[in-house]
Computed example of a mutant assay.
Amino acid sequence: MLWVSEHGGTHMDAPSHVDPGGKTVDQVSLERLMGTAVVIDLSLSAHLDPDTQLQIPDITGWEAWNGQIQDNSILAVNTGWGRYWPNATRILGTPNHSDPSAFHYPGVHPNAASWLVENRPQVVAIAVDTPSVDFGQNKNYSVHRIFAKAGVPVFQNVANLDQLPPSGCKILAIPMKIEGGSGAPLRIFAILHEHREKQRDHFHLTTDLRYCHSASADISAGSQFLPDKRCLSVAVSICFFIFTQGLITCMGVN
């Protein structure tokens, strides 16, 4: 028997995770699992303050440089936290891994979440490189609830967001299709423009796959750290896609 954590490593939170009436993993539409990437860089702020949260001006500031968020977009928040994987103490901001009240890591502010839902419904999903879309000190999961109520899935512990440009690439997320699941292990990819291919001839894949020549890089997280030690989370390599146009970056960590 294989026990798999729905919420370990790089994973998707379905709306039903915090909303009893929300869609489960197998009910989330494919339209919410693929879209144009909107990558907002909070890495400097997060480096100075681990309790940094994405604010409305961060979103409107991105739009001032890149234009209004397009239809079918996935908003990804790069806090730089991916570089700490798999050091649980650095990721959680405390050596006390079993005490959520001591957690310190970046996230999305509830006001920004509400603003996105009300003013940018074209955002179909949210991706973060931290354990939760709520920052570490938010104990009522208000941001989870805001997105869940709007039917917006959340991708967490996403890796290599620092390798993506602010705009101009596509994200595809492939969760394990668990019937009735509130979450699922996630394989997530970014398709980059061809001109990026020559900047680097390979990206690091999941550790069991070593390297892949200029085709893909894994950006899904594994499960070395889980607050719930009773669960064993297994990163499953489902399949590879070869695209004749562009470069694929897999967005998970092992």
Score class of each variant (00 low, 15 high):
His109Arg: 09
Ser216Gln: 10
Glu197Phe: 05
Phe135His: 15
Asn138Glu: 14
His204Ile: 13
Asn96Gly: 00
Ala113Asp: 04
Ile238Cys: 05
Ile188Gly: 02
Arg32Thr: 07
Thr36Pro: 02
Val77Ile: 15
Asn78Leu: 04
His144Glu: 01
Ser5Gln: 07
Val38Ala: 00
Asn96Leu: 11
Glu31Lys: 13
Val108Phe: 02
His7Pro: 01
Ala217Leu: 12
Ile171Gln: 05
Ile126Val: 14
Val234Glu: 05
Trp81Glu: 06
Ala217Glu: 10
Ser101Pro: 00
Asp71Leu: 06
Asp129His: 00
Ala125Glu: 07
Ser43Trp: 00
His104Phe: 01
Arg200Asn: 11
Asp134Phe: 03
Asp58Gly: 08
Val128Cys: 06
Ser142Ile: 04
Val28Met: 08
Ala190Pro: 03
Asn140Gly: 01
Cys169Asn: 09
Gly151Lys: 06
Arg32Ile: 03
Val158Tyr: 02
Ala215Asp: 07
Asp201Asn: 14
Gly168Asn: 09
Asn140Phe: 07
Ala125Lys: 06
Ile126Tyr: 02
Gly151Arg: 05
Gln137Ala: 14
Gly22His: 09
Gly252Ile: 01
Leu209Val: 05
His47Asp: 05
Glu197Met: 12
Gly61Asp: 13
Ala46Met: 02
His47Leu: 05
Asp49Ala: 12
Val124Pro: 00
Met34Phe: 10
Trp62Asn: 10
Gln122Lys: 10
Ala159Val: 03
Ala37Pro: 03
Thr94Arg: 07
Thr206Arg: 15
Gly22Ile: 10
Leu42Pro: 01
Trp62Cys: 10
His193Ile: 00
His97Tyr: 07
Leu42Met: 02
Leu75Arg: 01
His109Gln: 11
Thr244Glu: 10
His47Trp: 02
Val117Tyr: 02
Gly9Leu: 04
Leu44Met: 11
Pro50Thr: 13
Gly93Ile: 06
Ile74Arg: 07
Val4Phe: 03
